[in-house]
């Protein structure tokens, strides 16, 4: 990497940090429980809007994994999400009515919160419909992973987004608060992904899966990105660029081996396709607050008119992380 590129990326990073600071004025602190957090605590950062039905399971899932605290930005919910979150003992809650889109889909807000609370901590940035799976997650807590990453001098850990869907039409899959969404939508595509290297910021651009084959069969270039780096040992100078798909400094994106071996990696089970989805898609199209003019949601809303079935006979039923490892979607690397 030449000096020019390096300097350009540095400026870019500074610009995003500046943006994060500017956008931080849109945040109002509802409850602050961030004092007296353990010095080696693991934190979850999340932005959400109207996710009340998903929150009970979401919080429980990450608590069981060993997360010490949640920093949540509530973007103008009116379904009781705020009321549910505020009394939770391990939640620091912010709220804002500002535009999701102009905060670059929540990234600016979270960059600010991470800048403020994250340095020196392992930070996991996930949406309420994303469930982090890592090697040995059924027998080892998250801290075992972060300790190992520390010992291996690794600062970030990648986990690609794996879209989960139910068998049968989406609208017929009922979901109630507290249910395991992976149980309700337990299927996924195991082997139709494309991997492209972005040499500018060093990340891998992953596309494919059910969204690509159903909603973008004629224009795969537009299919959503699935690469994610949700777990990072945060420092003040770090900044996410677009969602958790990539971040700066660019070395944090380089969590893959180019010499034939495999580094350790995980998966984010993305349980977007539940019965709640159709309403959400319609609403989001109306709001127009999502990436690339909500193109994705428009495609979904169109397809949803017919209440489509994503499932096909080659869909895989989710069992555990070992299955994902065997299928080649994640890797233990040299962690044993």
């Amino acid at each position: 990497m030449g000096f020019r590129q390096s300097y350009r990326l540095r400026l870019k990073r500074k610009r995003y940090l500046w943006r994060a600071w500017r956008k931080s004025r849109e945040l109002r602190n509802v409850v602050d429980r961030s004092q007296n957090l353990p010095g080696n605590g693991i934190f979850v950062f999340s932005t959400l809007r109207n996710e009340a039905v998903r929150l009970p399971y979401f919080l429980e899932y990450y608590r069981n994994m060993g997360v010490d605290h949640f920093f949540i930005v509530d973007n103008d919910s009116d379904d009781g999400s705020t009321q549910y979150l505020a009394p939770q003992e391990d939640v620091t809650l912010y709220s804002t009515k500002a535009s999701y889109k102009s905060s670059r889909f929540g990234v600016d807000w979270l960059n600010h919160l991470q800048h403020k609370h994250g340095p020196g901590h392992w930070c996991l940035v996930v949406d309420p419909d994303e469930f982090f799976v890592f090697p040995f997650c059924d027998s080892r807590p998250l801290r075992a992973l972060t300790d190992w990453l520390d010992a291996s001098s690794m600062r970030a850990f990648s986990a690609m987004l794996l879209d989960m869907y139910p068998k049968g039409p989406i609208n017929d899959t009922e979901y109630f608060a507290g249910d395991d969404p992976v149980e309700a939508s337990g299927w996924f595509d195991s082997g139709n992904y494309t991997y492209k290297r972005n040499h500018d910021i060093g990340n891998i651009w992953i596309q494919g899966g059910p969204r690509s084959r159903l909603f973008f069969p004629d224009d795969p270039h537009k299919a959503p990105a699935l690469n994610k780096t949700p777990l990072v040992k945060w420092e003040k100078s770090f900044a996410y660029l677009s969602s958790t798909h990539s971040l700066l400094p660019r070395g944090l994106n380089h969590n893959y081996e180019t010499n034939g071996g495999e580094k350790a990696s995980g998966v984010l089970l993305h349980t977007k396709f539940l019965s709640t989805f159709a309403t959400k898609a319609k609403e989001e199209v109306k709001r127009g607050q999502h990436y690339a003019n909500s193109q994705e949601y428009i495609a979904y809303a169109d397809a949803n008119e017919e209440n489509p079935e994503i499932w096909c006979k080659w869909s895989e039923k989710y069992i555990n992380w070992r299955q994902l490892e065997v299928l080649g979607l994640m890797s233990k690397g040299n962690w044993a």
């Binding site: 990648s158 986990a159 290297r197 010499n259 071996g261 580094k263 890797s331 690397g333």
Partner: peptide, 20 residues
């Protein structure tokens, strides 16, 4: 485990294995 890290699975490209 070491072999997985150094050699990986032949014929597989995934998020943490992108051979040059």
């Amino acid at each position: 485990a070491t072999e997985r890290r150094v050699k990986g699975r032949h014929g597989l490209v995934m998020q943490s294995r992108i051979p040059n």
